[in-house]
Nucleic acid binder design. Structure first.
Lengths: 196, 196
DNA sequence: CCTACCGATCGGTAGG
DNA sequence: CCTACCGATCGGTAGG
């Protein structure tokens, strides 16, 4: 679940990364300042740099933590011998749960990754494209064996993945249904929409 | 379709707003600078201020143009005597077409409105909430008369509206299906997913 | 529409 | 971990 890597000074850095997650989520990466981050952590801005290299490194850590979690999950799903429609449901439930339990990180990695600097930017972009391709391949298998409606596979993936990101609004809603209910509703709408 | 209002110096301001739309879309509001906007328009930064009041006013114009277009559309839909499921499809097709034809403005108004300054910020927020409430009310009518699957109406709205925003990725894809195909695919997945 | 320029704030470094 | 401070850049104004 997007574990933060621990080094020698792991616990101190973890506090900073955690505060950065909340700050970047609340303000957006560009609008978030290192001075406000420092204030939330309880140190002067300059002191942050004993634990991190740069603002961009914080963004990088967050984005790749999230990306790797999805990366590892789809790998496991691909190896299973479930039917394509079942694999799809497994993938979708993972996305939904990540958005429910870990939504700040996921939200940042979704919306702010474009501010990564360039060796990382294109790495991230490639990883993201590769993930979606593999996701689409599973949808395509479902189309080929007749379980899934015959609509463009990569378009289906776009729709489904963006629908999941709507959970961010659910978090901010005052009259929330439970996470379990939300998950079932989303599965109903999206899987039923894809099924033949 | 999110027409830009024309004043005395309408044509000049229109050029600036149009360039701002592209710039804000490409870089994000906070990362976009007035100096780069000026460069794209072909004047010095200071000269922009003969036509606009502030950077925030540009964002405001863009956001409210978009919001008003949806606002007017749902009003017409509400007055029609179609069945709820048909109203829903009409609303959805309007969202899809706006995202296809006008996606930069819609994208900005979706993701950058939080940077509006405060009388406008809460106006926008209220207008947005009101829109979603009315959208949800139509879904609820469909649930009540048995046309639509019995799942939480406002959750359905979140899912559906966010799914539509996935069209932004379609724009950037190299192997695009046509806009018409895309619209039909989205309607298939989402309306079938909602139908009983 | 331009030149000249303002105060504020940014990410980050030096040195202890 | 702090004080002190850097160069760069920001949105915006004055004055012509």
């Amino acid at each position: 679940m997007a574990r933060i890597r621990t080094g020698k000074d792991g616990s101190r850095k973890e506090v900073i990364v955690k505060a950065a997650v909340t700050l970047f989520y609340e303000k957006g990466y560009k609008a978030a300042s290192m001075r406000e981050l420092a204030e939330r952590v309880g140190v002067e801005a300059a002191s942050l740099y004993n634990h991190i290299r740069s603002k961009t490194e914080l963004l990088h850590d967050i984005c790749f933590n999230v990306a790797n979690a999805f990366w590892e999950h789809i790998h496991v799903v691909e190896l299973s011998d479930a039917r394509p429609i079942e694999k799809l449901e497994t993938l979708l439930r993972f996305h939904i749960r990540q958005m429910i339990n870990n939504f700040e990180e996921v939200y940042i990695s979704d919306r702010e990754w474009r501010y990564l600097a360039d060796p990382y930017l294109s790495n991230f972009h490639n990883q993201r494209r590769n993930y979606r391709k593999r996701f689409a391949a599973i949808v395509q298998q479902g189309i080929d064996n007749g379980e899934i409606n015959k609509i463009d596979a990569s378009t289906s993936v776009l729709i489904v993945l963006h629908a999941v990101s709507g959970i961010e609004s659910w978090h901010r809603s005052k009259f929330k249904i439970s996470g379990e209910e939300l998950e079932e509703h989303m599965i109903t709408i999206l899987i039923d929409g894809l099924k033949k």
